[in-house]
């Protein structure tokens, strides 16, 4: 029971963090048709910026300033990089972001060093929130939950209830028509790219101190975010939300299961000492998202809630 409760809580929080990353990516993808390989690099930048800012002032200032800075970096990348490459087609755009991810990682290594930095959770939130089944649950994770829900509500209001959101939604599917109506479509693209990167940066700010802030964090997170976007369905925020929670829960539950193939399929004659039989479910946890990705693309290419096929 206690494993289930903890896996549920951690899974939801991890899933919300994934959603924070993937919401920007799915918006960018449905608008420009580019899977931004560097998206997780902006997540990393968020964590590092927050580390610098909270070192010189406080975490609370970093929580607001760092995402804005990351968003500005993203807007500059779109304006002076992606827009130029756009003429050469989607493959060139994908490769540009692929190279950019490389570049950001190397620059971060030079500026902050190759090992992890000491980015900590603020003292104010460094206490156990509640205790269940004899184990305490850190308050910072509850804070993460609230930030994520706040972001979710904010994004929903922006997209569904404001005029700007209406234009963005229109530009997702009919950029030319929006352009003919007199809106500056390149500017909308740049803004959406900036907002998407800022959300990734926010995820970095609140996620970097609970995981590790090191130059490899982008490479670890990047592929999983793709999985979320593809499984959720292209351009569907609801789908991305469902997929984030699904993958968050799947991974956290799998980690908690120590049963091995041998124990589960023992009735088929699989011994726990054989090579296949000794593999445990928990060791499979990092692979599960990719298995889901491949199966999804083969059997349901439009994802959980996507309207178009990838």
């Amino acid at each position: 029971m206690e494993t289930i409760v903890f896996a549920l809580l951690n899974g939801v929080i991890y899933g919300l963090l994934l959603f924070m990353l993937s919401s920007g990516l799915t918006l960018i993808f449905s608008m420009m048709g580019v899977l931004n390989f560097a998206h997780a690099s902006f997540y990393m930048l968020g964590a590092y910026f927050a580390f610098t800012i909270s070192g010189s002032s406080s975490f609370w200032i970093a929580l607001f300033i760092a995402p804005v800075l990351v968003g500005l970096v993203g807007a500059v990348v779109e304006r002076y990089g992606l827009r130029k490459v756009h003429a050469n087609g989607h493959v060139a755009e994908l490769l540009f972001t692929f190279g950019l991810a490389y570049l950001i990682e190397e620059v971060v290594k030079i500026v902050y060093g190759k090992t992890s930095v000491d980015y900590r959770i603020p003292d104010l939130l460094d206490f156990p929130a509640f205790t269940i089944y004899g184990a305490s649950f850190p308050a910072y994770r509850i804070f993460m939950l609230f930030v994520a829900i706040g972001m979710l509500v904010g994004l929903w209001v922006l997209l569904k209830k404001t005029r700007a959101g209406l234009i963005i939604q229109a530009a997702l599917t009919h950029p030319h028509m929006v352009g003919h109506l007199g809106h500056n479509v390149p500017l909308i693209f740049m803004t959406v790219f900036g907002i998407g990167c800022a959300l990734a940066g926010l995820a970095g700010v609140i996620g970097g101190n609970i995981f590790v802030t090191d130059p490899a964090m982008a490479v670890q997170m990047g592929p999983i975010v793709f999985v979320v976007v593809v499984v959720g369905g292209i351009g569907s925020l609801e789908g991305a939300f469902l997929a984030s929670l699904l993958i968050g829960l799947l991974q956290n539950f799998a980690v908690g299961i120590s049963a091995s193939f041998g124990e589960i399929f023992g009735f088929l004659g699989l011994s726990t000492t054989s090579e296949l039989g000794s593999i445990t479910i928990s060791s499979l946890a990092p692979m599960l998202p990719f298995l889901l990705l491949v199966l999804m693309l083969i059997f349901r290419p439009r994802g959980l809630m996507g309207e178009q096929e990838l």
């Binding site: 989607h90 090579e275 298995l291 990705l293 693309l297």
Partner: peptide, 25 residues
Amino acid sequence: KAGTTFAMISLGVAELIAAAGFMFD
């Protein structure tokens, strides 16, 4: 399919095979 679908499947398969590489000694 060509395009992004193919790219994503290749990424997923690569991750799976690379992970399996460390599992089956």
